[in-house]
Amino acid sequence: MSTRSGFEKHFPEALNEFAFVTVFDLMIQYIKEGRIKLDRTRFAGVKATYHDPCNYGRKSQRLFGHAYYEEPRWIMDQCLDNWVEMYPTRENQLCCGGGGGTPPTGYHEERFHYSRWKAESIKATGADMLVVPCHSCHGQFNAMKKKFDMPGLQVKYLWELVADCLVV
């Protein structure tokens, strides 16, 4: 997101010189063109949920005029039979607490206090697996497992889910 806004602000000429693609659009392209095949039974019996990162939602909407809400959900549908939404989602989602560069600030106690509502949202889904398309969120959720007593929760990148379901 920061790189994309950096290009738009400082190097707009490059936007015509090259093509640019988001992680979502690239995975969707591979799937739709039949370049990758996915096995939806790989995680049979696992209940999953999805976290909307701030940067692909509200931030992308404001900066680029499009929020990535439906794309990741479509990808989830290609990989999983059983996944549920948490509450709240999309433009109303709660930040994981690891956004804005907070993890390297050293304010750990504050960062976990921040994520208390998010932990409740996750627990309420009863999910065993939490899928995220963001490195900051991934790190924060893994750190939250201990703090909020969710030892069984598997935190997975969206592209990891796709890689795990690949038929090769």
Binding site: F11, F18, F20
Partner: peptide
């Protein structure tokens, strides 16, 4: 700006067609 500009330099140096926006 510096960090973004370096990615652009790499794109030009390696003559790639597409950038995958960093996750």
């Amino acid at each position: 700006k510096t960090m973004t500009g370096r990615i652009l330099e790499n794109m030009r140096r390696l003559e790639v067609k597409t950038l995958l926006w960093p996750e």
